[in-house]
Simulated assay, not measured.
Amino acid sequence: MSRPLTFAPPPGTHSAPLRTSRGTFASLVAPAAGPAARGPRPTALLLPGFTGSKEDFISLLQPLAAAGYRVVAVDGRGQYETPGPDSQEAYAQGELACDVLAQAAAVGGPVHLVGHSLGGHIARAAVLRDPTPFASLTLVSSGPAEVDSVQQQKIELLSNALTRLGMEQVWEAMRAMGQPQDAGADDEPALRRRWLMHSAAQLIATGRQLMTERDRVDELAALPLALHVVSGERDDAWPVPLLDEMAVRLGALRSVVAGAEHSPNTDRPERTAEVLTGFWDVQASQG
């Protein structure tokens, strides 16, 4: 579970409903604040990972906006402040990919798409369905196929618990086991609220996706789209050497954020913002 540094939008950003052809999604928006001389640039659309939310990107909003990019971070269907159905079928990857395409249309193109972990798999599926709205794709700590076997075991345990227990009971069980790690008294109420507002069906369905995702790297590499692979120095979901290999297969820019693990967006947000905007700035100079 990612731990945002705060759940409060920083100055210059705001919460807003993102109304699309496939429903309304909760979002955090940061208007571009960079020098006007840079001219209009693509909007950055940020997709969170498993058990995460738009708040996982909250510390990126100001630095990305200051570099001249409008930023929209979203809760997907069934995540935190975006309600979702109780049916697991509603969270099939194809459905979630179509949501992303609707979100991209709503924010207006072109779009720099960024997906963290599970969000990377969903972003990839959206781009493979229709790459035309996107100026680039960045995969943050998101591997070529299913997660590591240890993570698969954890997800299976969570899924089994969610089928038998309520969200409150599962939260109490996780806390008894020390999860989320390092959660202090100040941030636990916000993390608990986020957990309780998630859809159990969404968690079960997307957890299954993380355990069974097939390798689609060659399909993605065949697209005429700028690609970027970002991770921390360590990752407990996909080994970093596997991410290195994936970047080579994609012909993608590879960025490793020093001092970060599976969530560089929360571990080292300033540096993560730098590698993102550096990549996007190159696309702007070439466009």
Rank of each mutant, 00 (worst) to 15 (best):
H121Y: 13
R124F: 13
A125D: 12
A125H: 08
L128K: 01
R129K: 15
R129D: 11
D130L: 02
P131D: 11
P131H: 12
F134R: 13
F134W: 13
A135V: 14
S136H: 08
S136M: 05
L137V: 11
T138Q: 02
V140T: 04
S141R: 04
S142E: 06
S142D: 04
S142M: 01
G143R: 05
P144R: 11
A145R: 11
E146A: 13
V147N: 08
S149I: 04
S149N: 00
Q151Y: 02
Q151M: 07
L158H: 04
L158K: 06
L158G: 07
L158W: 05
S159H: 05
S159F: 00
L162C: 02
T163C: 09
T163A: 10
R164P: 03
R164C: 08
L165K: 02
L165Q: 02
G166R: 00
M167Q: 09
Q169L: 09
V170C: 11
V170T: 14
W171L: 03
E172W: 09
A173C: 01
A176N: 06
M177I: 00
M177E: 10
M177F: 02
G178Q: 04
Q179D: 05
P180C: 03
Q181F: 13
A183S: 13
G184W: 03
A185F: 11
D186S: 00
D186V: 02
E188R: 04
E188L: 12
E188K: 05
L191M: 14
R192Q: 14
R193S: 10
R194E: 03
R194V: 00
W195C: 03
M197P: 06
H198S: 06
S199D: 15
A200G: 15
Q202H: 14
Q202Y: 10
L203A: 09
A205C: 15
A205T: 13
A205F: 15
T206H: 13
T206V: 10
G207P: 12
R208H: 12
Q209T: 09
L210I: 04
T212E: 13
E213Q: 08
D215I: 12
V217R: 01
D218G: 00
D218C: 00
L225I: 08
L225D: 07
L225S: 10
L225Q: 08
L227C: 01
L227V: 04
H228R: 06
V229C: 04
V230M: 11
S231T: 11
S231F: 02
E233V: 12
D235C: 02
A237T: 05
A237H: 13
A237N: 11
W238R: 01
W238I: 04
W238Q: 00
V240S: 08
V240N: 03
V240L: 14
V240M: 09
P241C: 06
L242H: 13
D244V: 15
D244K: 09
A247Q: 05
A247Y: 01
A247K: 07
V248L: 12
R249C: 01
L250T: 12
G251Q: 03
L253R: 15
S255E: 12
V257S: 10
A258D: 15
A258F: 04
A258S: 14
A258N: 02
G259S: 09
E261Y: 12
